[in-house]
Write a protein that binds this DNA or RNA. Sequence first.
DNA 1: ATGCTGATGCAACCAGGTTGCAAAGTTTAT
DNA 2: ATAAACTTTGCAACCTGGTTGCATCAGCAT
Lengths: 137, 137
Amino acid sequence: MKDRIDEQLHSRNIKPTAMRELVLKVLTDQKTAISLPELELKFEKADKATLYRTLKTFEENKLIHSINDGTASVKYALCRESCECYPEDLHVHFLCTVCEHTYCLNDIPVPKINLPAKFRLENVNMVVKGVCSNCYT
Amino acid sequence: MKDRIDEQLHSRNIKPTAMRELVLKVLTDQKTAISLPELELKFEKADKATLYRTLKTFEENKLIHSINDGTASVKYALCRESCECYPEDLHVHFLCTVCEHTYCLNDIPVPKINLPAKFRLENVNMVVKGVCSNCYT
DNA sequence: ATGCTGATGCAACCAGGTTGCAAAGTTTAT
DNA sequence: ATAAACTTTGCAACCTGGTTGCATCAGCAT
């Protein structure tokens, strides 16, 4: 288990400190994207700033991606192995308005958009809001 | 001018107070979406809470729509006359990473997405980041 | 004029995000 | 093995946007 974690960190050129291993472990076990405050709650006692910087490091190195789903806080989820966070790599995110969980719909790529003349595209954030299958009645 | 403003307010069932007329005027003159802090700066002396509530009122009555473009703050822009903020009414937003302005790409509808089974769609937020034509080199 | 309702202004609060700085831990060169 | 150099961590403090409670004020109906 730990091996696998360290391997992941290594493959993204992130030094495997104890803290980072723990955070990555939490992120791996997570089915939905998680926010910084939520991450804090996963630990008995952990420093917000450290977690914050850990997430930033992960994001810079493309181990995770951030999602701004319109709720108060930014959420984070693991990137796929092959992800380089290019526009082609992007997928749709789904925010359930009942349970507030944010899902990565990895199989649904973000549709291509034709921008007006002289607009250059760098990135796309597409969040669908609705009710997830768990909360579906 | 004022007539036109009042008419707009009236058509959305919003009582035309002085404050609201001023805010709507600012929003009308705006080419890009504006945030609460930005709106505050447009006035010599105005109360944040009042502006906040004014925006909320406008939004509830579908005179404006909010855009969460991933920057720290939520931005607001006028709805089109015919807008009821249904998913069909939605358009793509563009955030310029240079000037930080957010454009309503009114002519680009949000693409339709096929969600997984038992996921119900309510709303879609699609923000494209990049460089706008003004900042394009 | 009187009373009711909703709008405004002020102050205070809250949460998430972010930074500075010193202590602890790692790595590298000698 | 030791010292120097660099990185990570933990703590505290801060900033900003968003939000709320409450007293006051304005507009309208009676």
